[in-house]
Every structure is written in C-alpha cells, then in structure tokens.
Amino acid sequence: MLAQIVLFDGFDPLDVIAPYEVLHAAGMFTEGAVSVELVTAEGPREVPSGTGPLSLRSTGTLDPVRADVIILPGAAGELPAEAATTDEDPQDTIPAVLGRTLQTGLPGLVEEALRREDTIVATVCGGSLVLAMAGLIEGRHATTHHLGLELLEATGARPVRARVVDDGDLVTGAGVTSGLDLALYLIEREIGPRVAHSVEQLFAHERRGVVWSTRGQAPALAL
C-alpha cells in the first residue's frame, strides 16, 4: 500500500508528521507492504509550512494512479478573528492559506483520485475544507477541526462530529492530533488490526474518539 501525503505552502506540520510516522512504522511491521512518501502537486521541492521557518521536502509528484491512499493535511496560520484584531496579514489566515491551494493543480489531481475506485482520499483537520471549497465532496460525510464544521456544511458536505469519519473512499480526521488516529484507522482497515495495534504499542499511543462510518443500519432517531 503506497500512501502519498500532500504538501502545500502553509501546511500544518503535525498533520503531516503524525500520519507519516504511523505509516512508516506500519511499513516496518509489514516488511515493506506499506510505504509512504511526501509529494506536492508540482513535484519535488522544498515546501514551507505555516509554522515559522519549518519546511519539509517533497520527493515526488502527487499521482492518483500510483497511490493507494492520498492524505491531505490542513494549514497552520492565524484564525480570521485573530487577524482582524492584530497586525497579522489576513492573507495568512488558515482559510486564506487553504483557499490558495485551489489555484494550484491539487484540486484536479484529488478529483481524479476520488473518481478512481481503488484510491482512498483521506484528510487531516482542514484538509477536508480544501476538498469542500473545491466542490469535490458535496453530499459526502466528513469532519474537520471543530471551528471549520460550519464552512464544511456551507459548501455542501455533510459534517459529522467525530474523530474519524469513514465515508468509503473518503476518510477524514478532525483536529490536528487526529492525524495519528486517522492513520492508525487506515492501517487497521486496509492492512489489519494486528499491525495497527503493533504501531500503537510502538508509539505508546491509545486511539481516542469516535470513528463514524456509513456502514451499518442508520439510526431511526436523529439527535
């Protein structure tokens, strides 16, 4: 299973590093059956994060044909309300950073991935908002950081208040630290619970929160 984690200018580092380490460890426990790489829509380059001078280097190009799993992180930056009351540039707010990805080749590549039956698109935190703003997940169940749930709904997605939301070939994680739980869930779902448990033990991490799925009977009562 090849997982490609997508970098873009202003990405949130923890959204990337947490799933990267989980997937890399899963590769160790499966003798290479799981592999992970950092990519961009443009190809190999140094990519600045939204957290100070920290940057990461992509080693390849996002490829919906090669990748079995594509993971899209959220952004780091100022909240809109904070920028309005400080000297921060409103272009540095998280929604603005996420919005700039729409001017790149990223939405088209993710759209291609969503059309492929054998490719999973996953997101951490604000990554699902990129898909929503691009009009790619209208009517789909998804989650994001709790501050972005209204925007998710406004763009036509169906927000779910859960740690991880499994809508088939679309799997989304909530806040920043959910990247750990999202990646572990993907390992459990695609590789198996024994490997996922071994990675949990390695990192001394116990998954938390609710995993919501479209599978199974729908509840008769709406809460």
Rank of each mutant, 00 (worst) to 15 (best):
V121T: 13
T85P: 00
V36P: 05
V34R: 08
L14I: 12
F203Y: 15
A67I: 12
L152K: 04
G27L: 07
V97Y: 04
S178K: 05
E111V: 12
P107K: 08
L180Q: 09
V22A: 12
S128G: 06
P193T: 06
V39S: 11
L223W: 07
R140I: 05
R116G: 09
E21Y: 11
G43A: 11
A196I: 02
P73C: 11
P80T: 03
T119H: 11
L184P: 03
G192H: 10
L109Y: 09
A222K: 10
P90Q: 02
H141R: 01
G173E: 04
R189S: 05
D89S: 06
F29Q: 14
T51H: 07
V164A: 08
D166Q: 10
G10S: 01
L62C: 12
L62N: 10
T123F: 08
R215M: 06
I120M: 13
A67F: 13
G216F: 01
Q217S: 12
L147C: 00
I137C: 04
A183Y: 06
R100Y: 09
E46T: 15
E46D: 15
A18P: 09
L109V: 13
R116H: 12
G148F: 06
I187D: 01
E78T: 02
L131N: 02
G156A: 04
E82V: 07
